[in-house]
């Protein structure tokens, strides 16, 4: 793993949110907490797109926010360009955030309605004082707006004058204003219609080719993640279940959860859809306040055995570069014969 190319390394990241409020409840021995992120480790190389998928509440957004310290991680290390983000002071943190930016999910809530888009996009440059000259800054903003496919003449308009897709472009322009090395995209296209979604996905790929930025791409839509990512990780109940390069993960998933997730995605092609072998999981994901013992997935897993409810499987390298947290991990552990539904 000691690759010189590694831009960001996350080691055993944990985040717990207290459930009980009040001083005594918080400090009592049996204080309950939501285990949002549980021992998550991965690394992102410079210039690549790392996809993070999972169902709602699996901790994918929390992971993204912990990396940038928008929320404080409970434990673990986040090493960005050799420095531990988790132990940085405010000054160091500010300097680090020049190289790490964020694109938010909701393009309606993440832009200040009282600022013109020129002000919004130039704000990072003002905060970090990278371009002290105002005219020069405006020139850069115009170029950026043009790059993301917006009319530079609209620099003095307000966010409400733009559609959802255009607002997401403004958010992307803002994230690129400082030419960061890593952008964390938290569900950047899930609020958009398919035709607009494709525009934004293409824009993100084009910008990556131009600037060489790495992305941590967080989304729940598996086909979107497959389209944009070089490597993909699957999370469930705060745990990393499997990660690998996108081709292997989608063609030969090792974890039964990944397989069920992939098989649950309807494919917009009736012939293929009819010929697929679908695994429909029973029940709902368990509560992260009281996660199951052993493997977090064993309560819904079609191939779970006694061992799964006792020992928690560690993430292990089943094939080079392919990590999976399952006792029975092998390519395609769920075979037709093993499903009893």
């Amino acid at each position: 793993m000691a690759d010189s190319n590694v831009l960001l390394r996350v080691e055993n990241l944990c985040k717990e949110f207290p459930v009980d409020s009040g001083f005594i409840a918080k400090h009592s021995k049996n204080a309950r907490s939501v285990h949002a992120v549980n021992n998550v480790s991965f690394d992102i190389k410079a210039g690549e797109t790392f996809g993070l998928v999972g169902e709602s509440g699996c901790g994918k957004s929390t992971t993204g926010r912990c990396i940038m310290r928008l929320i404080e991680p409970t434990s673990g290390k986040v090493i960005f360009e050799g420095n531990d983000v988790a132990s940085m002071n405010a000054k160091e943190l500010k300097a680090m955030r020049r190289d790490m930016q964020f694109v938010f999910q909701d393009p309606y809530a993440s832009l200040n309605p009282r600022m013109t888009i020129g002000e919004i996009v130039s704000e990072p440059m003002v905060i970090h004082n990278t371009v002290p000259d105002k005219d020069e800054r405006i020139e850069i903003v115009r170029t950026l707006l043009d790059t993301v496919g917006l009319n530079p003449e609209h620099i003095n308009r307000y966010p409400h004058e733009f559609s959802g897709g255009q607002r997401q472009r403004i958010g992307i322009a803002r994230a690129f204003a400082l030419r960061p090395k890593l952008i964390i995209c938290d569900e950047p296209v899930s609020a958009l219609d398919v035709s607009i979604q494709a525009q934004v996905l293409n824009l993100l790929s084009d910008l990556q080719k131009e600037f060489g930025t790495a992305y941590l791409f967080i989304a729940h839509d598996l086909s979107v993640v497959q389209h944009i990512s070089d490597r993909v990780a699957v999370m469930y109940l705060g745990n990393m279940m499997e990660y690998s390069d996108w081709k292997t993960l989608y063609a030969e998933p090792c974890h039964p959860y990944t397989q069920s997730l992939l098989s649950a995605v309807p494919i917009p092609d009736p012939d293929i859809q009819a010929s697929r072998n679908r695994i429909i999981l029973r029940g709902d994901p368990p509560s992260p306040i009281d996660p199951p013992s052993g493997c977090p997935f064993h309560t819904r897993c079609p191939i779970a055995q006694a061992k799964c409810s006792q020992d928690k499987p560690e993430l292990r390298e089943v094939l080079p570069g392919h990590f999976c947290a399952c006792h029975f991990a092998e390519p395609n552990p769920i075979k037709e014969s093993s499903i009893e539904l």
Binding site: E55, S56, H220, L222, S260, L261, S263, A264, V265, P266, R278, I280, L281, R282, D284, P285
Partner: peptide, 8 residues
Amino acid sequence: LDVTIQAQ
């Protein structure tokens, strides 16, 4: 809903 629930 999530995809696994959608399938159900």
